[in-house]
Design a protein around this nucleic acid. Sequence first.
DNA 1: CCGCTTCGTCGAAGCGCTTCGACGGCCTCC
DNA 2: GGAGGCCGTCGAAGCGCTTCGACGAAGCGG
Lengths: 338, 338
Amino acid sequence: MATINDVARAAGVSPSTVSYVLSGRRPISAQTRERVQAAIAELGFHPHAGARALASSRTNVLALVVPLRTDVNVPVIMQFATAVVTASRTHNHDVLLLTKDEGTAGLERVAHSTMVDALIVMDVERDDVRIQALRRLKQPSVLIGLPEDPAGIVCVDLDFEAAAAEALRHLAWHGHRKVALVGPSPAVYKRGTTYAERFLTGFTIGSAELGLETMTHPCEPDREGVRACLADIDAQLPGVTALVVHNEEALRMVLEELQASGRRVPADISVVAVCPRDVALNMPLPLTSVDIPAHDVGGLAVATAMKLLDGRPTEPVRLLPPTLVERDSTAPPAVTAG
Amino acid sequence: MATINDVARAAGVSPSTVSYVLSGRRPISAQTRERVQAAIAELGFHPHAGARALASSRTNVLALVVPLRTDVNVPVIMQFATAVVTASRTHNHDVLLLTKDEGTAGLERVAHSTMVDALIVMDVERDDVRIQALRRLKQPSVLIGLPEDPAGIVCVDLDFEAAAAEALRHLAWHGHRKVALVGPSPAVYKRGTTYAERFLTGFTIGSAELGLETMTHPCEPDREGVRACLADIDAQLPGVTALVVHNEEALRMVLEELQASGRRVPADISVVAVCPRDVALNMPLPLTSVDIPAHDVGGLAVATAMKLLDGRPTEPVRLLPPTLVERDSTAPPAVTAG
DNA sequence: CCGCTTCGTCGAAGCGCTTCGACGGCCTCC
DNA sequence: GGAGGCCGTCGAAGCGCTTCGACGAAGCGG
């Protein structure tokens, strides 16, 4: 492997000049720069990451903590992860993958041993123990999600409260008065995953503001769970004309069960999904949906981390406004006798 | 941050002694070791990863290249990835996440800049350009998959040929004579993803050996694709009594379409799935399946990488034998007139 | 009791890079 | 036309760790 000294010799300059060509931290004449760059290309020089980290105390690596439990929606997690990786690359950073189950220890390990410049943490819970740990690190961190007390840590996420309100507004505008929320599985609520709670809050508030008759129901994402959920909804909110589904796994089954019970979407019942765009489009019929913009959130998380590293000012909490796209699963309610 | 010098001073020894306590490369008296360890604990010392990498030319980081395209089965990819991460941790390594779309450049970047000790590459295609690149690197690599010409690179994977044979053997043993393969989507074949081809090969050979009447059909994983696929199968292989499904996305829909067409599983038609265990168990009825042991394969990939790093001998290609577990979706064929 | 090995520890030399201060040479401005 | 600046480059000092050779002390056999 060529070193910076080899390059310097080949270009007839000093190592520090090569370094300055690379970093651009001092002016270098066009001539010299070209000679150096030619030497770099010819020797196939790549700076040694460890040496660089040692000398500059910058690693150009971000830690990304992902949950590995399977009761969260895996494809969505993966969308966030890939968004973070691609965004990091555009900022000339790489990504070190940590799993949530290493907990606090994993964060401290990579931070204390200076393996990463900053941390991005997904799937934070209401009062996640990891948050105090993050506060103590010298590296900045960005959460994807919104804990109870985010003081001192920057958070980015979709504004799930607004998302719920948006879904209800759309349905109300179509004339719906009786709307049910098919939520995530009970396990998700139990864990204190705040996006579920925030959506619920938004749903409740929106419902009150719009004067709707609503109910909410968690839903286990298997055939039985979906059936039970829909049955409960029919029992507790007879004449329901619209569903908001905040549960990717259950989505397809909800549609199938509605069909099985003889109800047509959207003629007999409207459905608004809360899910990534491609999920909404890959259903038997294209669903009206509030997008979960994993790509944007991931990109924003990385951009925010970069800001922090540069010492630029940053909003402590940044919630992206939801976008609802009307597709084929919503329509005005059927006019019924009664 | 405390350095090794701080620890040395606190323990009243030289820095090199601390280093030897940490690495165990030279004998250290129990007394000294304890004093050093106490100092380490007290100061919360973590060796600086960059400095360590620079001095030892070992980073204790593995690169993992995952596909980010969505036409592969995301949850399965994620299973591999988490398996690799957890296994790496047990070997005291971390994982740097690269995406396949950075291609050859990404591999070279992390290798040349000495960010990683070894590379693990998923989703290799028949004659993947990345393979030549890997051969040129000074770091060893392990492929999850099996390219055309694996010479010089170690590969691990499930033995998909044997898996197909195993599925057929099970069905033949039950007395089935007409069996169809519902394969991955055409895109997967087109890409030259070898596991699909290997399964197909095994299916064809097994079919001949067992004297079965079979056919194979790729399947687009949406409602229409599944319908078309099943219709083709019924047309081309009338009286088919069993299906082998090698397509996680389509699996649930296949079952539903069979039911919709009035066929009961396994009374009227048997189904063997090729998928991870948990997928087989989370279907409306527990499916007889050949497991895709993502966890084992990921773990093996890491273990193999460690072997290579230690200079221990390694089999060039290691294909894990498949395991078929009989559950509720297979039974002898119905006795019909004719 | 002497010389040889083994054990436990130290000191110093790097690993490859960044960065700070220094220093010529050139331009500019009065 | 000389003082003052800026531009472009160099040299050297580290960053924090590992590792090699060296060296006393202790243990052993003859």
